[in-house]
Design a protein around this nucleic acid. Structure first.
Length: 514
RNA sequence: GCUCCGGUGGUGUAGUCCGGCCAAUCAUAUUGCCCUCUCACGGCAAUGACCAGGGUUCGAAUCCCUGCCGGAGCACCA
């Protein structure tokens, strides 16, 4: 036993070792979301990978909201908590949560220090002008300003004496650097729009990401930065600042872009927002939306997302994530716990036509003839007899899915009930000799009783639209959030129970996957 | 235009640093069979990849060169 414990090997899956991990006493990382909206599925990669590294190395992780742009990527005040909630759903817990917008004075202090080192200068060039100078590797006339003037002008920026676009603070890098992306970048600029957070609403001089994030990473003792490939050049820019201060830059890992198949809606905060605003989506949790809120509402476990994201590794090339692999993991997680229930679909209200799984046609109703018992008793779970049977009553006939109704004269096996032969509008009981199924290939189908009290109405939202149908009455026993597998349909999460005052109310379910 | 990064089956991934144990791993997917009172779960099998061309070498997915393709940055966005 002691030997087993002494074995330090990691069993967290596919992630490669962090660079130079053994040179640090503690691995310290950060999640650095911009709270400009709720998260889409791609956002989950950050907590999934970084959180998993935290577990592997028993490290430390801060969630730092990089909310330093009150205008272009304006923070959404609800998003802060939504993001923390999403991190929790994914199964991770930041050791600390901070907001860059609370730390603006700190960034000013380091800007002043940088000015003192002649590492930055105030610049009033119009952006286009500076851009063309930069393209030619030419310094602008502000670059050699004396330190005191720079100080004065910077303080004036901080004091709100300049309007947007009139003055910026630039880091003096190497104006002739062969990579134009690294030449004298902006550290602080003026934004007229007040920050939406009251505590930060008075600031007009706002740091740019490369400056803010660089300062914070150092102050927080971050040892490993793991982030997207779009920030590839960021590290190179920030190294100039680190060099001025004599700091050691953290180890960096970059990953490529993720795309997810199975969605028509692009995975972009702004696009999803537009579609929500316009009504094309009912919200961020619309099952058609590639968002955390959506898959969560469908009953997909955070752990399934994390598993898939970790499986992508940290390659810098772009990757396509197949939803089917998330489904496979989720199925594995929920299958044992999900009761089986019958759902007979009624496609009348469906906009998901033409899908085998969700036929558009209405169910077929049959009267029962012969010695059929008053109810069927299929098991709650086929792999766990101990959970017992459910009672599916059929005193007033049955409903079968349109695709499942047998042709006249043919037989059908109502699962958990018995075998019937169709005679016109009747189903005539032929008994429970299972060899009908095993040897003669009688199809086995799900079914519900036709009487008003013998089924409940269900509306199910899917990634392809809505379907409605009738579930066995036992479905009414579940609570919101419960997952069941509708046999031969798929897994679904109960989202809302009907209003008790509405006699014809529907149960609302969200479809997860087959 | 300039500067970076990358290209293994439908998808993802291992292997690439330190060439041979790789006619290439695992997962997922698809198909078939078995199991089965679900089109679930489980079992078995099949399918399917080293971007291209040169070079180095006894030997290259792995090293070098060229080409092609893809991505990112060059914002007073993050």
């Amino acid at each position: 036993m002691a030997e087993l414990e002494a074995e330090p090997e990691e069993d967290e899956g596919a992630l490669p070792e962090l660079p130079n991990a053994d040179e640090y006493d503690e691995i310290r990382m950060r999640l650095a979301p911009n709270p400009n909206g709720p998260w889409h599925l791609g956002s989950a990669r950050m907590p999934a990978v970084i959180g998993t590294y935290k577990e592997i190395y028993d490290g430390w992780m801060v969630c730092r909201f990089d909310d330093t742009d009150p205008e272009t990527k304006r923070p959404d005040l609800d998003a802060y908590d939504e993001i923390l909630d999403a991190i929790d759903y994914l199964g991770f817990d930041p050791d600390e949560v901070i907001k860059a917008s609370d730390r603006v004075e700190t960034y000013y202090e380091y800007a002043r220090e940088l000015i003192g080192k002649d590492g930055a200068y105030t610049c009033s060039c119009p952006p286009e002008h500076f851009r063309s100078l930069k393209a030619d590797a030419e310094p602008c006339r502000h670059r050699d300003k004396d330190r005191d003037t720079v100080r004065e002008e910077f303080e004036a920026m901080v004091d709100g004496e300049y309007g947007a676009g009139e003055m910026v603070l630039r880091v003096k890098t190497d104006i002739e650097h062969k990579n134009p992306a690294l030449r004298d970048f902006v550290a602080v600029r003026v934004v007229d729009t007040p920050h939406p957070r009251e505590a930060a609403a008075d600031h007009r001089a706002w740091p740019m990401l490369d400056f803010q994030s660089g300062i914070d990473d150092h102050l927080l003792g971050i040892t490993h930065i793991v982030r997207g490939i779009d920030l590839q050049d960021s590290a190179k820019r920030q190294r100039f600042v680190y060099d001025y201060f004599g700091w050691e830059y953290p180890e960096v890992v970059h990953w490529g872009h993720v795309q997810i198949d199975a969605y028509d809606v692009p995975m972009s905060t702004s696009t999803i927002n537009e579609k929500v605003e316009s009504g094309d989506l009912t919200g961020w949790d619309d099952p058609r939306a590639p968002t955390i809120a959506s898959v969560r509402r469908r009953g997909i476990r955070g752990a399934a997302i994390v598993d898939a994201m970790v499986d992508l590794g940290v390659s810098t090339s772009n990757v396509d994530l197949a939803m089917s692999s998330i489904y496979a993991t989720n199925r594995d997680l929920i299958d044992d716990g999900a009761d089986r229930r019958f759902l007979v679909r009624d496609g009348a209200a469906s906009d998901a036509e033409g899908r085998d799984r969700f036929p558009a046609a209405s169910p077929a109703e049959f009267a029962l003839a012969g010695d059929a018992p008053p109810a069927g008793h299929p098991p709650l779970h086929p792999n766990d007899e101990a959970r017992g049977d459910r009672e599916v009553p059929a005193a007033e006939g049955v409903l079968l899915g349109a695709n499942d109704a047998p042709a006249d004269g043919e037989r059908v096996w109502l699962k958990g009930y018995g075998c019937f032969r169709r005679d016109g509008d009747d189903l005539v009981w032929t008994g429970t000799d299972i060899s009908d199924v095993r040897e003669e290939g009688v199809p086995v189908v799900q079914w519900v009783g036709a009487g008003d009290d013998e089924h409940v109405r269900v509306r199910m939202r899917t990634t392809d639209g809505e379907v409605v149908g009738y579930a066995e009455p036992g479905y009414a026993d579940y609570a919101v959030d419960d997952l069941v597998q509708f046999e031969r349909v798929g897994f679904a999460r109960l989202d809302a129970r009907p209003d008790p005052d509405d006699g014809d109310g529907e149960f609302l379910a969200f479809y997860a996957h087959p």
